[in-house]
């Protein structure tokens, strides 16, 4: 696992109290009880800090899953394999 993916996973584990093994295609806004709007904004804020990006509003709105988040970050130039 690359360093960026490790940092990404840590954010999800800290904010949602999830185990790393739970972080997969099923980890979505709809399926995770703790993923409310406050947790969502905390997630966005933490990821922006860690990866030094600023998400477009549309990406904030559609950042609805663990996997989709990886794709969005890669669009901002974050190499998730690094």
């Amino acid at each position: 696992m690359g360093e960026n993916l490790r940092k990404y996973n840590e954010v999800f584990m800290n904010i949602f109290g999830a185990a790393e093994s739970e972080l997969n295609e099923s980890f979505t806004f709809e399926s995770v009880h703790k993923w409310d709007s406050l947790a969502h904004m905390a997630l966005i804020s933490r990821l922006e800090d860690i990866f030094d990006v600023m998400f477009e509003t549309e990406d904030v709105l559609h950042y609805g899953s663990y996997l989709n988040g990886i794709k969005i970050l890669e669009r901002y130039g974050v190499d998730m394999k690094a």
Binding site: M41, I44, S45, E48, D49, M54, T57, V60
Partner: peptide
């Protein structure tokens, strides 16, 4: 509204 969206994210930090 969009200015407030971005500004509030920075301010919250």
């Amino acid at each position: 509204i969009e200015m407030m969206q971005y500004a509030s994210r920075l301010m919250a930090k």
